[in-house]
């Protein structure tokens, strides 16, 4: 009765395949110098050799180490600061004007400041990742905690719930969904800023690999870096969304 529908992935795969095909064909014409266009097969070969000789995993390891370390610091600080800002009127009065003002500065504008303060070593990269993660997490935590209905605080007061169970049983579960969204946004933001920082000043990492590729006119290395950084970005976003879904399942269940 019904014609079997074409699976959704076939039209979805068509344009990327066409693009890769056209790219391969264009580079085969020999009209473009190798600094401008290399065939996709060449990029794949480079990617494979970088993977085999361990160069890729060394760069990737460095980048991920910086990301995890910086993100952990920035997110923890953001959580604590956002919660404190939301819970205490005094802390809000003291810190929120400064917080709002500093938020106006694009994170990358801190790069020159931090380079002068910290040099271009690991400390700088971890700090810039932490700064990038701090703001979205702090903001989401503040909004999340402020979003907890006032009635719940009143219930806790009526039953004289001690602070620890109140935080563990009421505050945390209620704020988990918005905070997780904030953490996910912070994670992709941190990845963006880290790659940018590595482009500017680093002796290792995915960003540095791409920058070296550019300086040596190795477009295959640059493209390999683009692919890897895209895959990492995708994995981070998907992974965070997966955790978000699992952790907030109780809301719909």
């Amino acid at each position: 009765m019904m014609a079997r529908p074409i699976p959704a992935f076939i039209p979805a795969l068509a344009p990327p395949l066409l693009l890769i095909g056209a790219w391969q064909a264009a580079s085969a014409t020999g009209l473009f110098p190798a600094q401008v266009l290399v065939p996709p097969s060449e990029v794949m070969r480079t990617l494979a050799s970088l993977a085999v000789n361990g160069e890729l995993s060394a760069h990737l390891g460095q980048s991920l180490f910086r990301l995890v370390f910086g993100f952990a610091i920035g997110a923890t600080a953001g959580l604590a600061f956002g919660a404190a800002l939301a819970l205490s009127k005094w802390i809000e009065a003291l810190f929120s004007p400064l917080f709002l003002a500093v938020r106006q500065v694009p994170v990358l504008a801190f790069v020159p400041v931090l380079v002068l303060l910290l040099g271009i070593e690991e400390g700088f990269k971890i700090t810039i990742v932490a700064v990038a993660a701090f703001f979205p997490v702090a903001l989401a935590t503040f909004d999340g905690v402020r979003g907890v209905p006032k009635a719940w605080f009143e219930v806790a007061r009526v039953y004289r719930t001690p602070l620890v169970p109140f935080v563990a049983r009421i505050l945390v579960p209620a704020t988990v969904p918005p905070v997780l969204t904030g953490l996910r946004i912070a994670l992709t933001r941190a990845w963006l800023v880290l790659v940018a920082a590595e482009l500017l000043a680093a002796d290792s990492g995915i960003g540095q690999m791409m920058e070296m590729g550019r300086q040596m006119f190795r477009i295959d290395v640059v493209l390999a870096g683009v692919i890897v950084s895209g895959l990492i970005g995708f994995a981070l976003d998907r992974g965070a969304k997966w955790i978000e879904r699992r952790a907030t399942r109780w809301r719909t269940a």
Binding site: W191, L192, G207, R214, V226, S229, G230, G233
Partner: peptide, 12 residues
């Protein structure tokens, strides 16, 4: 792909 990750390619 992180936005600024395109820079080396576009730079070339």
């Amino acid at each position: 792909v992180p936005l600024l990750g395109w820079l080396p390619l576009i730079g070339l």
